[in-house]
Write a protein that binds this DNA or RNA. Structure first.
Lengths: 92, 92
DNA sequence: TACGGTTGACACCGAACGGTGTCACCGGCA
DNA sequence: TGCCGGTGACACCGTTCGGTGTCAACCGTA
C-alpha cells in the first residue's frame, strides 16, 4: 500500500497490530520502543524517528519499499522519463 | 527496492539525488529541510524524523510502499501464513 | 461488586535532533 | 593563479522526541 503521509502509515500500523492481536505494550516490547511511542505514532504524531519505525514495522512483519514514482514502468511508450525531463530542465 | 535499514534508504536517496543532478542544498530547499539534514541522512544517521524523510522523498519523486512481508508471494505452497501462526499462537 | 487488561493522556526530564553559521578541501574553469 | 560550487564536518543552541511513571476510563469476566 502506498504511503503518502504519516497518517496512512499509522493506520496501516495500527491495523496490522490489531490483526496480529498485539497490544500496544506487546508491540512496543517486541520492537524495543516504549508504549508511548506506539500510542503516539498511531495517534498520528507527525514526528517520529525512522529507526524506531523500521523496528516496529519489522516487529509487525511489514516491509517498506522505495521506488521512483513515475519511472516504475519506464520502458512503456506512454511513460514519462522524469529524470530526463528534470535533467534537461537543469541543463537548459 | 526493499528498504531494510536506514543505510539502504540513504543510498537510494543519494543515488536518486545525483541522478536528478540536484545538490544537497537544492534538494534541501525543495524539501524544506536543511542541508545538514540531507548530508547527515546520506551519511547514514540512524535517527531522522519520518516527516522530513517523506518530504525529501516527495521532492525526489520517490514513493514509499508498505506491505505485509510474508504475503508478498503468498500463493506459493511453501509460503508461511504468519498471521495465522501468530493468531493461533496468541489464542493457544 | 471487584479485578485485570487495554488504551488515551498527562508531567517530568535527559538526550538528541535539526537549523544556522562557519570552515576547509576538492575539482572545474577562466 | 584565483574564483566558485559542492561537500564533509564541526560548534552552538532552541526545540522536542522518547522513556518512565502515573492516572482515569472503558470493557469483559469471575
Amino acid at each position: 500500500m502506498l504511503v503518502r503521509s504519516i497518517g496512512e502509515a499509522a493506520a496501516q500500523l495500527r491495523g496490522r497490530r490489531l490483526a496480529l492481536r498485539l497490544s500496544q505494550d506487546q508491540l512496543a516490547q517486541r520492537a524495543g520502543v516504549s508504549r508511548k511511542w506506539v500510542y503516539e505514532f498511531e495517534a498520528g504524531k507527525p514526528h517520529a524517528e525512522l529507526g524506531h519505525l523500521l523496528r516496529v514495522l519489522d516487529a509487525l512483519d511489514l516491509q517498506l519499499d522505495l521506488s521512483p514514482r513515475s519511472a516504475s514502468s519506464q520502458s512503456a511508450q506512454g511513460a514519462v522519463d522524469l529524470d530526463a525531463i528534470l535533467e534537461r530542465h537543469r541543463d537548459g
